[in-house]
Design a protein around this nucleic acid. Structure first.
Length: 193
DNA sequence: CCTCAGATGGACT
DNA sequence: GTCCATCTGAGGC
């Protein structure tokens, strides 16, 4: 199936966040093609968004990645032990990204299960199955995504996104865990199935 | 089902 | 020194 190219990402961040729902993340590692379907996203738009690391075009060593043109990864460490995977959007100089907040495992569950829980997929509890990659830190663990993959192009291995399933209906709401962001905390920039 | 404390380290001031 | 775009296990109901 077709990999998404730069035309997809070089658009308005809210549009990209919506349209990423249902797409497949593919992580190639050790001869495996770990695949998961995106079920939840959030948009971050530096120009107007106090929740964005690059709010008001604040450029630091970390946020420099967000200023790239759409189509590369922005991956950072959160709370000292988890990674968050974002897709950079919009044109060069506009610090914008879409956080991948949740996904559904699709292919190579066995390999992902070892990465995520350190035990075979068949041994997972109902609770573990339900929480396999329904969070930004969880999906990064299941797909072996960490900061070493920061600022890499997303149209080629080892990490890319390709066409997925058609989405008929989705939900929107406020973004999660950004209470500090004042008025931006109420922006309905979360999209989920 | 729920809430809550603790883990843990880098980015930034 | 403070703040996180989080997750887990323990304990309560």
């Amino acid at each position: 199936m077709t990999r998404l190219n730069n035309d997809f990402y070089l658009r308005d961040t809210l549009t990209v966040a919506r349209e990423l729902l249902g797409k497949y993340i593919v992580r190639e590692i050790d001869g495996h093609k770990l695949t998961a379907m995106i079920t939840e996203t959030e948009a971050y738009i530096g120009a107007v968004d106090k929740a964005c690391h690059a709010y008001n075009y604040r450029k630091t060593e970390r946020t420099a990645t967000l200023f790239n043109k759409g189509g590369c990864s922005y991956i950072y460490l959160i709370y000292g032990m988890y990674n968050c995977f974002n897709v950079v959007t919009d044109r060069e100089g506009e610090p914008c990204a879409v956080l991948i907040r949740g996904a559904e495992p699709v292919y190579d569950m066995e390999y992902m299960s070892m990465l995520r829980y350190g035990k075979p997929y068949s041994k997972l509890t109902k609770y573990q199955l339900a929480n396999f990659c329904n969070g930004p830190g969880k999906l990064c663990k299941a797909l072996a995504i960490d900061r070493k993959l920061n600022n890499t192009l997303l149209d080629r291995p080892p990490l890319y996104i390709k066409e997925g399933v058609d989405i008929e209906k989705y939900n929107t709401g406020k973004r999660i865990n950004i209470d500090y962001a004042e008025e931006a905390a109420d922006f309905p920039w979360r999209f989920y199935l």
